[in-house]
């Protein structure tokens, strides 16, 4: 039994999501090999080699992998898939783009978003926005899996001493090309890996009022998130969205402000260790999952909270 993992990286650094995927692979058992695809990515491969528990790192260095184009990455993974019993991806936007292609090219079912490894062929994954947990069993020769990274602790980034082997790139697609990207500028921690998340909902009333959440997030070194309602209303961009159709987070502290707690929002945050809800509607469903609830007008509570955090 052996597992191949596609490493995610940006700016020369391995994304924390990959470290969680390594932990899922450890839970499955067997050898763990990593595949690094990138342009001038030798440094990334060297860092990947020090992750605890890794057997071997393959490096495919090519301009074709300068951006995370699904066609090119899936062709590469399939090229080196032979002999592996499991192929794992992080269930990130990038991983979700590639995983199903690899499964289809290998003519097996993809297994999305696993949150638990029951055995080498049996996994648990949320369905219906996390309102149910399905235990699924795969009889396919190779299991192609997306790992919900919040469900697995990060593997140690140091301590391993795997070998790095250069491998040939796969054929690049001529049907797709990268044009550009617009990344949100923030000096805050990344939403899915932050220890504390401060989120706002429709109760924030407009985008300008999110500055109050930014202020509190700054004091707590927290990331700022939002409900789908706030994104739909145009208060904040989509990359803030926490929920079934956005990001899944599981921080130590999740502070939900002016968020009613729709099913689809709870799906993205209910595995947080401590949940705090501030809402003026005492009937809001968010209070049913909150460890600490404060029934208050957020426009009174937030300035008070900001001041209290200074004290």
């Amino acid at each position: 039994m052996s597992t191949l993992i596609l490493v995610e990286h940006e700016g020369g650094e391995i994304r924390p999501a990959t470290l969680s995927v390594v932990s899922a692979a450890v839970a499955i058992g067997g050898d763990i090999d990593l595949l690094v695809a990138g342009s001038d990515a030798r440094g990334v491969a060297d860092k990947a080699a020090t992750i605890a528990g890794v057997n071997k790192v393959m490096l495919a260095d090519s301009a074709a992998y300068a951006h995370e184009l699904a066609e090119n990455l899936s062709a590469l993974v399939v090229k080196y898939a032979e002999g592996y019993s499991h192929i794992l991806f992080a269930a990130t936007a990038a991983g979700k783009n590639v995983m199903p292609r690899v499964a289809a090219l290998l003519d097996v079912s993809g297994i999305s978003d696993i949150i638990e490894v029951k055995s080498e062929d049996t996994f648990v994954r949320p369905i219906y926005a996390g309102n149910a947990l399905a235990t699924v069993k795969s009889s396919d020769a190779v299991k192609v899996i997306g790992v919900r990274t919040t469900a697995f602790d990060a593997a140690a980034a140091e301590g391993g001493s795997a070998s790095v082997e250069s491998v040939e790139a796969a054929e690049a697609s001529d049907k797709v090309s990268f044009v550009g990207q617009e990344l949100s500028q923030s000096d805050r921690p990344e939403l899915t890996s932050a220890d504390i998340v401060v989120s706002g909902g429709r109760g924030m009333q407009n985008g300008e009022n999110f500055a109050m959440l930014d202020d509190i997030a700054g004091k707590l070194n927290a990331a700022v998130g939002a409900s789908r309602a706030a994104v739909d209303a145009g208060y904040v961009p989509n990359e803030y969205q926490v929920g079934q159709t956005g990001k899944v987070v599981a921080p130590d502290l999740y502070l939900a402000v002016g968020i009613s707690g729709a099913i689809q929002h709870l799906a993205g945050m209910k595995d947080s260790k401590v949940i705090v809800a501030i809402n003026k509607d005492e009937e809001a469903p968010i209070f049913q999952v909150a460890d600490y609830g404060l029934v208050a007008d957020l426009f009174d509570a937030l300035p008070e909270l900001s001041a209290a955090l200074d004290g």
């Binding site: 940006e10 936007a93 049907k175 550009g180 990359e239």
Partner: peptide, 12 residues
């Protein structure tokens, strides 16, 4: 929509 913002690609 990608995790860190927006990406544009050209496809045939």
């Amino acid at each position: 929509e990608i995790d860190a913002g927006l990406e544009s690609i050209q496809v045939s």
